[in-house]
Amino acid sequence: MRMMNILPILVIVLAFIFLAPFFLDVYNLGVLRETLMWAALTASWFFFSGLTKYISLGSAAFFGTGLYFTALYLEQSIFLKNLPALPLPIIVVMAGLLNFAIALAIGLISLRLKGIYFAIATLALGIACQGVFNYIVSDIMKTYYTHIPPFDLQTTYYTIAIAALVIFIIIYTLYRSNLGFALRMIGENEDAAIHFGVNASLTKTIGFALSAMCIGLMGGCYTTIFTVTAPTIAFNLQFSFMPPMMAMFGGLVTFYSPIIGAVILSVLRNYLGITFVHHFLIVLGIIIVIIAEFMPEGIVGFVRKIVRKLTMRSLKESEKR
């Protein structure tokens, strides 16, 4: 039933995404590319943090690691010929798996932390990663920039778009799976979840690692838009702050609400925020405060509530008749 309802929308969106390079100009395509990137990041963030309510402010660590791994591999294989040249998808998948492993290790030890302490730990992780990579590239390798072979716009667009769709599919499957259910139970009430036989620490760790894997995958694909990269680019704190902000903007209610939040914010930022940035960001700040105040379930939750109220009213009216 549900599948049928959204199938036409899905087909239109997919067609739009895949055919966009044929009718969109360069700028709009760039915005769409960025939007897809943010949407994928936000969905990955939501899968762990949104479901379990363990807020991670460390997406930048995984994003940057994925980006840097891919960049270094590309540089070593194409420019320096130290490594065998592999097709990009394989490198990106390797980046994702690397992140999976790292996040597994980090999750095992850090997920004992509760609430805000977990947020601070992950935030510190992002900053520490930047410091460590900065140390590696400037003090050990002595070459600050990592060079990446240039890709043209269409290639980068399709790389990021396909990666985003793959991430959506992975996250959606996981979201509907037992793992997603267990994570949501942990988010509702961790003690009760344990009582029902959920292995909480294992579930959390795997969820965290899968989320980090998707973030790293996107980071790897994001490498294609650059020709050079540096730690300050790869581990920029905005990759830590934007996904939670976008997810909460859209609302942490279902699978698609964070994606809608990401799309709205990214599009607003790119079309309104290029000439009057200060004004735009001031207004955006006020809007975010208002949403946090009056719409605890974000924009999507708010719209749903209104729709529900309207249908209830019409139902009541029809009953009266």
Partner: peptide, 25 residues
């Protein structure tokens, strides 16, 4: 308390944008 922490974080994101850009403006 957990929900408070969670939602106040979001308010803070808004406040950061607001104060930062007001100062810049």
């Amino acid at each position: 308390a957990e929900e408070l922490e969670f939602r106040s974080l979001f308010v803070c994101f808004g406040l950061i944008l607001l104060i930062q850009n007001l100062l810049a403006h």
